[in-house]
Design a binder for these strands. Sequence first.
DNA 1: CCTAATATGATGCAGGTGCATCTATATGCT
DNA 2: AGCATATAGATGCACCTGCATCATATTAGG
Lengths: 143, 143
Amino acid sequence: MKTPSKETQAAWRALLSVSKSLVESIERDLKAADLAPLAWYDVLLEIEKAGEDGIRPFELQERLLLPQYGMSRLLDRMDTAGLIRRETFGDDRRGQSVFLTPEGKAMRERIWPVYAGFLADRIGGALSEKDAIVMRDLLRKLA
Amino acid sequence: MKTPSKETQAAWRALLSVSKSLVESIERDLKAADLAPLAWYDVLLEIEKAGEDGIRPFELQERLLLPQYGMSRLLDRMDTAGLIRRETFGDDRRGQSVFLTPEGKAMRERIWPVYAGFLADRIGGALSEKDAIVMRDLLRKLA
DNA sequence: CCTAATATGATGCAGGTGCATCTATATGCT
DNA sequence: AGCATATAGATGCACCTGCATCATATTAGG
């Protein structure tokens, strides 16, 4: 049987517990500030980056690593919350394009300072720039 | 406003996406082999490590970073599945001690090869021992 | 052209999670 | 002792997620 080394196991356990703790931490910060959760931020940002023409749900899925039904429902909720708008367009009538509403743009802009504070504090405050680069490179090896 | 560096942001994004992908990957492997999910394995292992006297739910919560209600319900499900057993004991009648059933022990032992294969392959195969140590140390700085 | 296969997105259902609250027991304070 | 406080664990409710499947539109193959 393949047996992972102690070092491998320790790295994995650290990865699991640290990422879990950090995600819970930022989610708490956002909730405490009455803001949308992290997943919403990512969607808002991707839509904003996409610009004028909006973006297709299936592109969002791919970029954000969500299953199709997950993105479908996330967009439902964000639509209900008035942060985005979906339009079917003539080209391919199966599909749609997603756009930010002004409220969506505003929400993204209100989230960023909280998120930035978290990142600067919890990540930037703990890792030097060199550390951060090393870590990113090691993580990429795992991807 | 605190602004996180590019390096900080890249490390964070890598942490999020890699840990997410890896967790999904092992969960898929376990499901495909008709085994219990990762969280159950951790619980089974902690109980087994605790030995003869069993372990208290609140200790499991602390060690596995689960909220109280989360552990309560996880133990419900594992109990229903016949993998664990809960006993109230005379000392403190608010509390209980949790034990493995033989089926629980067997489940843990069936999960391990799959988990070990995943770790050896996806983590050990991608990171040298030195890499793994560096990564664990960097992650600990974030904890 | 007509049919099969594929792509895009939605949805019913079962089960998991967060939050607040509840019950029961134990401990501390006066 | 008597009452407030704290600790251990369970639970109702709303919401979220995974899985399977559906509906519709498009593309490919004969």
